[in-house]
């Protein structure tokens, strides 16, 4: 067999393409859920950490430290294989959503905290001195500016977590990678793996460029 027939077998690729596309859709659904849940939870955790009552701050810090420290794969396997012993049985999809969202929320909280802390304290004092209530200060002075500062790093983290969706293949979720390995077994040919890699790159390379672009744009006044 030639190199082309082994690794870039177009006939094999065409045959497994519907299978790969189904996997790609699952990967997109997983990424969309994680990016949404993780981002919303992350901002909430960040606000709890900075402005919450003492117990909320302690909880938020514990959450952030825990999920920044634990490897995603370890967490995923715990949820999928260990939780059933406690009577909680989750599908591969939901195990992956939970594991990845927990980790992504921790990273998001840290990125937004950095954004909030970069806002000069004087602006907040000026708003307080005008007698504006705290929630308006947070919503209209702090958050809009913090979001702007945090967006490049947040986008970078989003790309990273989107890549990590491929870990879901180990808990039998039929994502792009799992479908590709199944297709490889089915056709006894590694071309589906190459095709899957190309699909990942087609989506993620532009995303990486977007991060560069956002970083440059943020530096401009």
């Amino acid at each position: 067999m030639t190199f082309i027939e082994t690794f870039l077998n177009l006939e094999v690729m065409a045959r497994v393409l519907p299978m790969l596309l189904r996997g790609f859709v699952n990967t997109l659904l997983l990424a969309a859920a994680v990016l949404t849940i993780g981002a919303v939870a992350g901002v909430a955790i960040c606000l709890a950490r900075l402005y919450g009552p003492k117990w909320a701050r302690v909880l938020a810090i514990a959450w952030i430290d825990l999920f920044r420290a634990i490897p995603i794969l370890v967490l995923l396997i715990l949820i999928y294989y260990a939780l059933p012993f406690a009577g909680i049985r989750l599908s591969g999809y939901w195990s992956a959503v939970i594991a990845l969202s927990c980790v992504f929320s921790a990273f998001t909280a840290e990125v937004f905290r950095a954004g909030i802390e970069a806002i000069p304290k004087g602006q907040i004092e000026a708003a307080q001195a005008l007698g504006v209530p705290g929630r308006s200060i947070i919503a209209e002075i702090i958050l809009p500016q913090a979001f702007r500062i945090a967006i490049p790093s947040h986008t970078s983290n989003s790309v990273a977590i989107a890549k990590d969706t491929s870990l879901a293949s180990v808990v039998a979720m039929p994502d792009l990678l799992k479908q590709a390995t199944d297709a490889q077994a089915l056709t006894a040919n590694p071309s589906p793996l190459i095709a899957a890699a190309l699909i990942y790159l087609a989506v993620l390379l532009p995303a990486v460029r977007l991060v560069h672009w956002l970083e440059r744009r943020m530096k401009a006044p």
């Binding site: 000069p120 004087g122 602006q123 004092e125 000026a126 708003a127 307080q128 001195a129 005008l130 007698g131 504006v132 209530p133 705290g134 002075i141 809009p144 500016q145 702007r148």
Partner: peptide, 24 residues
């Protein structure tokens, strides 16, 4: 006394060394 303090602060204007305008 957050609410009462905010109400009192409305009666006292302040100008800072570093302006502290809202840039957005």
């Amino acid at each position: 006394e957050g609410r009462a303090l905010a109400a009192m602060r409305q009666r006292v204007g302040m100008v800072f060394q570093s302006f502290n305008l809202f840039p957005h």
